[in-house]
Computed example of a mutant assay.
Amino acid sequence: MSAVTAPWLVVALREVETKVKDKAFVISTLVTLLLIVGSIAASAFFANRNTEYSVVATDELSYQVLQGAQDEHPDDVSLTISQTDAATAEQQLSAQEVDATLSSGNGGKDFTLTGFDEVDAQLQDLISSSMTSLLTDQLLSQAGIDSSQLPTADELKVTQLEGDSERTAMVRAMAFLFSFLFYMAALLFGMPIANSVIEEKQNRVVEILASTIRLRQLLAGKIIGNVILAMVQLLLFISAGLLVAYLAPGEIPFLGVVAQVAGWFVVFFLGGFLVLAGIWAALGALATRTEDLQQSTGPVVGALLAVLFIGIYAKGSFLVIASYVPIVSSVAMPIRLLSGDVALWEPLLSLAILLAACWAVLLFSERIYRRAVMHTGGTLTLRKALKLEV
Score class of each variant (00 low, 15 high):
V4W: 12
I27P: 05
I27C: 07
L30H: 08
L34K: 01
L34V: 15
G38R: 03
S43M: 14
A47K: 15
S54W: 07
V55D: 06
V65Q: 01
Q92G: 09
A95Y: 11
A95P: 04
Q96F: 02
E97I: 00
A100P: 05
S104N: 07
T112A: 03
A121E: 13
L123K: 02
S130L: 04
L134I: 12
T136L: 12
S148E: 12
V158L: 14
M170K: 02
M174E: 11
F180R: 02
M184H: 00
A185F: 08
M191Q: 13
E200L: 06
E207F: 06
E207G: 08
A220E: 05
I223G: 07
V227R: 03
A230D: 09
M231S: 08
A240S: 13
G241H: 07
G256V: 05
G263K: 05
L283D: 03
G284W: 08
D292F: 08
Q294S: 13
T297E: 14
T297R: 15
L304K: 00
I310K: 02
G311S: 02
G311D: 03
G311C: 05
G316C: 10
L319T: 10
P326W: 09
P326E: 09
M333Q: 05
P347S: 09
A356F: 11
V361Q: 10
R370C: 12
H375A: 08
K384D: 15
